[in-house]
Design a protein around this nucleic acid. Sequence first.
DNA 1: AATGCGTGGCT
DNA 2: TAGCCAAGCAT
Length: 355
Amino acid sequence: MPPRRRAAIGLVTSGFRPSKRIHYSVGIDTKTPAPAPPAAVPGAADGLQQLHDSITGWFAETARDLPWRDPSCSPWGVLVSEIMLQQTPVVRVLPVWHEWLERWPTPAGLAGEPAGEAVRAWGRLGYPRRALRLHAAAAAIVSEHAGKVPDTYPELLALPGVGSYTAAAVAAFAYGRRETVVDTNIRRVQARLVAGSALPAPALTAAEMRLAASLLPDDDATSVRWNAAVMELGALVCTARVPKCPACPVKDSCAWLAAGEPPPSYVPKGQAWHGTDRQVRGAVVAVLRLAEAPVPAEMFHHAPADLGFAPEGIGVPLAALHRLNPPPEQLERSLAGLLADGLAELHDGGYRLPA
DNA sequence: AATGCGTGGCT
DNA sequence: TAGCCAAGCAT
């Protein structure tokens, strides 16, 4: 195992001081010119330093002990965690992450198995295409990076399933680099603390990226700690629904609190679920995950009772699918979609995970 | 730029 | 209980 630069997140135990009241005249409106960095605001340089101290100090005391934050965790372990954590809560990721790292301690290990095994081992984390892309990323790491997770933002960004957030996060958390990490937690903290709004804009704006860059501490190690700390603050305290402001280390500096907690300026629209293709696809993949042989198309189209034989090992998810009772055309569309996405393949007249 | 893409705990 | 929401990405 080659030596690696790695920031020891969560080991800082000093530097905590109560922050003074500071306010930034910085917005996240993309139409306005680039916001003046807080450091350019009179007296704000001290405020920025205090912001760093307050939040990283809070992080040192409060941070969860997550395995991918351990300095001994490999870059591969960090990458796997970041992909799994996309739109998925930590508590659900933990057990699956452990299974993966034990089974596939290196990218080469995963790349050496069929993609379907990645989907199977993904379990019920959701968005199983992530498993497919992580498998493809492992293959790319083997073929293009000699089996080592790349350590630069552009190289990471080129990997399947790795977007701007994940590329920055892996460069920062696995390799100790100074990167502008912007996830939904950081966006929400910035929106409240600096912009004074209840929620960030519906989509990530360039202004938010500039703001995050302007808040980033100058040196590598501190910037890594800062990124992790702000994410943690958003995850544990500055939460979307009911923020725990009394427990916030920077409540006295928060523009949103100072403004009297104004409500969101827009209503986030939820995702439809019942009756959608996604629901059907999920039910189909649940069947394929448990199947040890290709599942005949008739099994999807007809209730088990009509088949004249018991589906081995897949009775429960198959029954769940038939309880959904999707229109035949929707079932067809969902199966075709899974084939098109590479989440399923046809073999011997049946459907199976890619082998 | 807006959509599609899973899952399950929480309120 | 029916939404809301969780360390996004690809198209």
